[in-house]
């Protein structure tokens, strides 16, 4: 892999006071959405909930509590919902976008940890991982799930030479270049591992940092088909396709 030529202009890019947006994708999260949002609001970060055409009382809760949100006029699936958040971040000129799940898995207190490497200009994209430091996380999911994650992680290692441990983590932070990239091009299905590999192929620097994660308090995983391996097979095919495609390194 050829390394892209990076010219750093620290004076031009003043990252001491970056504009940070937290994107919260929500699909039928009535049980947890208000507590997650009040936690984020208390932290002082800007945030926006992307309501992906929920059929429960999620949209009503968002309206009643005056939580900043975007109502998708039709259900798009997790990829399309998150991309809407990135488009919103681009239109409103945010420096850093953080993805945080609405089901209470991710701690707002860890947002600082995943945006710090971007502020320090060490990385373009940061993944909050529950596997790097096992002590700090109470959530380790089932054996089968971990086997799937390990397999995807191994294939990414095989293709790129770089190891990502928690490939399905939905707790991630992107700098301005990556926001721009995702606003234009974000995988509609199985977005986490696929988008990470896509970023690597484009020469972005990716870093994984340990974060605390909890069992989800409510709602369902967007990855519903773990058991039959359907998800894993789909991800592997998508990764293969990205590998086959010729990419300009534009990072």
């Amino acid at each position: 892999m050829r390394q892209p030529l990076v010219i750093q202009c620290d004076i031009l890019e003043d990252m001491s006071e970056p504009k940070v947006l937290i994107i919260v994708p929500a699909y039928n999260e009535e049980k947890t959405i208000s507590s997650v949002c009040s936690e984020i609001a208390a932290s002082g970060y800007d945030f926006v909930v992307v309501n992906d055409g929920s059929s429960d009382s999620t949209p009503k809760i968002l309206d009643d509590l005056k939580i900043p949100h975007i109502d998708l006029i039709s259900n798009l699936g997790i990829g399309g919902a998150i991309q809407t958040g990135y488009k919103y971040a681009r239109y409103n000129d945010y420096d850093i976008a953080v993805q945080l799940d609405a089901d209470g898995q991710h701690s707002v207190s860890c947002v600082r940890d995943i945006i710090q490497p971007i502020i320090d200009n060490k990385s373009d994209f940061v993944i909050g991982s529950r596997f790097i430091d096992k002590k700090s996380s109470s959530f380790h999911s089932t054996k089968l799930r971990r086997a799937g994650i390990y397999l995807i992680s191994f294939i990414i290692l095989l293709f790129s030479g770089k190891r990502i441990y928690d490939v399905t983590s939905g707790f991630r932070a992107a700098n301005k270049k990556v926001i721009e990239h995702f606003a234009e091009d974000y995988p509609p299905e199985y977005p986490e591992p696929v988008s990470e590999f896509d970023l690597m192929r484009h020469g972005y620097k990716i870093l994984e940092v340990p974060v605390k994660m909890h069992e989800r308090k409510g709602g369902k995983s967007s990855i519903r088909s773990w058991k039959n391996g359907y998800y894993v097979i789909n991800v592997i095919i998508s990764l293969f396709l990205i590998k086959l495609r010729r990419h300009k390194k534009d990072a």
Binding site: H69, L72, T84, K87, Y88
Partner: peptide, 17 residues
Amino acid sequence: QQDQIKKLIQEVSLLKK
């Protein structure tokens, strides 16, 4: 068309916001 519709839903939703 799926891709075009996705873009349309996203842009309309952003405009409404």
